[in-house]
Design a protein around this nucleic acid. Structure first.
Lengths: 302, 302
DNA sequence: AATGGCTGTTGCCTGATTTGCAACGGGCCA
DNA sequence: TGGCCCGTTGCAAATCAGGCAACAGCCATT
């Protein structure tokens, strides 16, 4: 859309806080960019950026304008999607921010299923922690977020939620794998623990629970990568703690839920930015995703 | 705002249903206009107008787009107004559609009072009948509407409403002017009646009431101009029926309310388009207007 | 059936706007 | 103090929107 060139310019400068960096991203020269912004400021009758030594920072007027610009770009996307929908082809783009736990099968399965029916729909999937995922929604960098234990936020509108019981994860030869069914946390703690680090919601949840009990937590291995932890568990008799939706279907792995007396379940949430009307393709995908999660993990307790 | 040139082009063509007429309004040539629209349609990947012999008609995609354009223009106006507000000056524009009955003192008084405090705020006041006034809101041609007996509409959000009792209006020398206080309708009907015609809500209200009673109505003079009727009443012993808010403060005129047994009061409504966020200046004006109407005409019965 | 009036559209040209290039001045930090 | 990054400016090239005039199609009136 040609006519909103200037608007994307402003948005990009606001994002990068510098004309030169923004110009590079936009494939134009800084001079063209600075002039466009000057023109716009002249039209508005007020500066929208504060010129500081390090670059450009939005002022109050700029904040208002940028919010409008983002709303508008998103709204136009919605309209275009609706228009494409009129001619029968479902086109569009879905930007999803999700926690690491869902890159195994939850998200890929869903994307595959949707694309099988509507191949014209494109996807971007960003892996972010629970805090950043919600931030991505408010920044219009993502349309949907699938996360564990998101921070309470007025901006987050829940489309689906359910409980996820943490599971002890070990290799098939592990002593704990001889039995099935719930396992007590204390029985896990006698083994070397391979735990998510504090960048992940699982660890926060665990720390909170243990802090209340006064049990000290001494992980043998910490990592920000669930995949790394799983690979490690395959190599020694360590135990990891992960949510069921994040555990791949691997015959060499076993998992048993942690006894409900030891750990409360975590909350899985699919959400969007409150008040935003999503493009048809995105809304449809969100809809299906919610009902598919419902089938997998049971009723939405909300 | 330079960048939405194309959008205003589309809106104008949609409004006039013809490129040549729209081009004239926009002070450009039809060729420039047709090319802009072709470019836009190319960008969207679909036509937005149906070419018919009589000109251009929006198709379904165009309807969606035009709605988006109107929303966006209105939203930008709101943002600009907010930005101006940051620097302390209250700037902005108020577009009001009102019934003829209010051009005497209600609206001019209010506009004058507001402009005395915020001279940077500009106004357009369109006189429309009750139907068209509501239409003006939905077409984004007006921000506010002040009307009598508006048609029930989901698009109309009431900001203030009150009752207006119809009054018999006559010159000071008229026999009916010898008394004050309520007057029965039958006492009016023995005199020549100078009534609003069916383009005005007052007449509809009157016709409805009389149709229920079976009383035939034989107006001696009909007019779409309340002002004309008043001028006529000054010249002979005719009686007109008008709402109090439309009667000027003229020593040569007298008015007496119609007895409540004969005619139900009419409803005066100040409203805006439902769901629309008005620019600060407009919202502030609407606010004041509502409370000023409250002072003049009493409580909002809603 | 022909004509005149309306519609949108197209080719060609001109003027305005936008962009790129290169250079400049200013703040910051080693 | 020198190097580096920042935004900005003058000037020239490229791009784009606009105007003019001509054209084809539809429709009602003659």
């Amino acid at each position: 859309m040609k006519h909103l060139r200037i608007l994307t310019y402003v948005a990009e400068v606001a994002r990068h806080g510098a004309i030169r960096r923004a110009a590079e991203r936009l494939n134009i020269t800084p001079s063209a960019l600075t002039r466009q912004i000057q023109d716009l400021e002249y039209e508005l009758g007020t500066p929208i950026f504060e010129r500081v030594a390090q670059g450009m920072r939005l002022n109050a007027a700029g904040e208002l304008l940028v919010r409008h610009i983002r709303d508008q770009l998103s709204d136009l996307e919605r309209v275009r999607s609706q228009i494409a929908d009129l001619s029968g082809v479902r086109r569009g783009h879905v930007a999803l921010a999700c926690s690491q736990a869902f890159v195994n099968h939850v998200v890929p399965d869903e994307v595959e299923a949707y694309r099988a029916q509507f191949p014209q729909v494109t996807f971007t999937v960003q892996v972010r922690d629970h805090i950043q995922a919600v931030a991505a929604l408010t920044q219009f960098e993502a349309d949907l977020a699938l996360v564990l234990q998101p921070p309470p936020s007025a901006d987050l509108q829940v489309l689906f939620s359910c409980n996820q019981t943490l599971c002890a994860l070990m290799r098939a030869e592990h002593p704990l794998a001889r039995e099935t069914g719930p396992v007590r946390l204390r029985d896990c703690l006698v083994h070397p623990m391979a735990l998510p680090d504090r960048s992940l919601a699982i660890r926060h949840h665990l720390d909170d629970a243990l802090a209340r009990k006064g049990t000290p937590l001494r992980p043998t291995i910490e990592s920000s990568s669930l995949e790394f932890l799983r690979n490690l568990v395959l190599r020694e008799d360590a135990v990891s703690l992960q949510v069921p939706s994040g555990i791949p279907d691997d015959p060499r792995l076993r998992h048993r839920p942690i006894d409900a007396r030891d750990l409360a379940p975590m909350t899985l949430i699919l959400g969007q930015l409150r008040g935003r009307t999503l493009p048809v393709a995105t809304a449809k995908f969100a809809d299906r995703f919610a009902s598919s999660l419902h089938q997998r993990y049971g009723a939405d307790p909300a």
